[in-house]
């Protein structure tokens, strides 16, 4: 069965690129525009991996990670931050919140695929 990946980003072009890249690799992609939307979209579906931007309106990436980790079925789900912040504190905050890893924008599609494969095996 194809694995479900939740892609959360307020930039439509990033979402499009992520979806395009991952679908080509045979993954199913669920898109969400911000943290709040993401929490709504995961109702009733099983997500195997989460890719999230950090800077978003409504609920930002850090908040989303915290919210997800509080849901019992998401305690061990890999969560990857997509971030332009090269600030270590943002990355640190994400890791503290429970993120599994990060990808620094700009990234190449191959980098995204390799990280997803590393986490989903």
């Amino acid at each position: 069965m194809a694995r479900n990946i939740l892609s959360v980003d307020d930039s439509a072009s990033i979402r499009q690129l992520v979806s395009f890249t991952l679908k080509k690799e045979g993954y199913e992609v669920i898109e969400a525009v911000d943290g709040k939307d993401a929490l709504a979209k995961i109702q009733g579906v099983c997500v195997d991996l989460v890719l999230t931007d950090l800077n978003m309106p409504n609920l930002d990436g850090i908040g989303l990670i915290k919210a997800l980790r509080a849901i019992s079925s998401y305690r061990f789900t890999p969560i990857v931050m997509l971030t332009t912040e090269s600030h270590t504190d943002k990355k640190e905050a994400g890791k503290q919140a429970g993120a599994t890893g990060w990808i620094v924008k700009p990234f190449k599609p191959e980098q995204l695929i390799s990280v997803v494969k590393r986490l989903l095996g």
Partner: peptide, 8 residues
């Protein structure tokens, strides 16, 4: 705890 699976 952060969602890492060592096997992959």
């Amino acid at each position: 705890a952060n969602g890492t699976n060592p096997i992959p």
